[in-house]
Nucleic acid binder design. Structure first.
Lengths: 197, 197
DNA sequence: AAAAAATCTTAATATACCTTAAGACAGAAT
DNA sequence: ATTCTGTCTTAAGGTATATTAAGATTTTTT
């Protein structure tokens, strides 16, 4: 099976490509194997790539002035990830991206991304839909941050993303939820059924 | 000056339309004058319109199980607003939209929105860019919610959106920041220069 | 203009979550 | 296998923010 099969299926969810268009698209992708703990992007560096996760898992996060990490998002197989604002606007990255497992990714450079729309205008639709989904997902996260307790957010997270929850540490989940690992530990303890303790 | 001038300038920020394309686009818009306090959308109702604010100000918010309001976003002149998830996916609304000033809006129905892309494919690009901006803005809000104190978020908000801050009540700002009006009042008191008290 | 309703403020008390510190456990490196 | 490093847990004490309730102020309605 070709390495591009997965990403082409991902694209096919929203638009239909001819054989030539598909070939053109895949010709723009750079395949990379990245071992666990690799830093793919660091704050202040140029963010020139949009990454599709073929296998493994990536995480984006930022550091506040005291050096505390906040996880912005996780990307497991079949997800796209970058520092979107800096990728789109050609600004130095405001976040870090690291591999949290050995991963295989496909990179699309900003230059190829921008040219792609002229070469194959259908991709405007594809990325419009991708961004629609990203936006509504992020808005839901905002609403949940504003209205739910940490405990409620934790259980929503593990129910909504069981795959991700199984691939990341509790420390990383805590930093995604905006709480300390200690407090997450307390939440979990409180919710373990009696006899299992 | 034509009522459509503003919205056409908004579109022209990202794509160039021919006279005919512009005429087609504006023919799809429904102009509405809505008095302050009008509810344009209520939870559970069909969300069939994407609204462009020509003048005035709208606010979207949701209610939690105790009836507490959380402001999702404000839209002043030249902003777009809807319950995006429900508009795109034809689901009953999860939020409320109300006019917080006498406002003039232009509505684009879901049907016209979907057809527009076939009639004038350039709009794929326009809405892709709109959604890019909405997504990165929302992601920044998530990061600020995770990393900043209420006081820091308040001052960032009034510096970033002075126009909005001047048009809405403190209660509404508090519900956007995810704090109580009482606590916002305390933050403001603490930061008033001595002699002004 | 008066009355009513909503917002804003103040302050006391309460709570969700944080900080610190230490020990237990697990995975990675030697 | 052993050591090392990071993660997870526990618990005591602390802080940011919520809740409640009341009065002051502003806005809206009559």
């Amino acid at each position: 099976m070709d390495i591009h099969d997965h990403i082409l299926k991902n694209v096919a969810k929203h638009i239909s490509l001819s054989r030539e268009e598909a070939a053109h698209f895949t010709s723009l992708l750079i395949y990379k194997e990245v071992p666990k703990k690799t830093t793919l992007l660091a704050e202040g560096h140029a963010c020139n790539q949009l990454s599709y996760v073929h296998s493994g898992a990536l995480r984006s996060y930022c550091l506040d002035k005291e050096g505390k990490e906040s996880t912005i998002m996780f990307a497991v197989a079949d997800w796209w990830l970058t520092d979107m604002y800096c990728f789109l606007n050609d600004k130095p990255a405001m976040m870090y991206i690291e591999a949290i497992e050995d991963s295989c990714i496909l990179n699309l450079s900003r230059e190829n991304f921008n040219n792609l729309f002229n070469a194959v205008p259908k991709f405007e639709r594809f990325f419009r839909i991708l961004l629609q989904n990203a936006y509504t997902r992020e808005q839901l996260r905002t609403i949940e941050n504003l209205t739910l307790t940490a405990e409620e957010r934790y259980f929503r997270f593990i129910n909504k993303y069981p795959q991700i929850a199984s691939q990341v540490t509790q420390k990383q989940i805590a930093s995604y939820l905006g709480i300390t690992p200690e407090f997450l530990s307390a939440i979990r303890k409180k919710n373990v059924p009696r006899r299992a303790r």
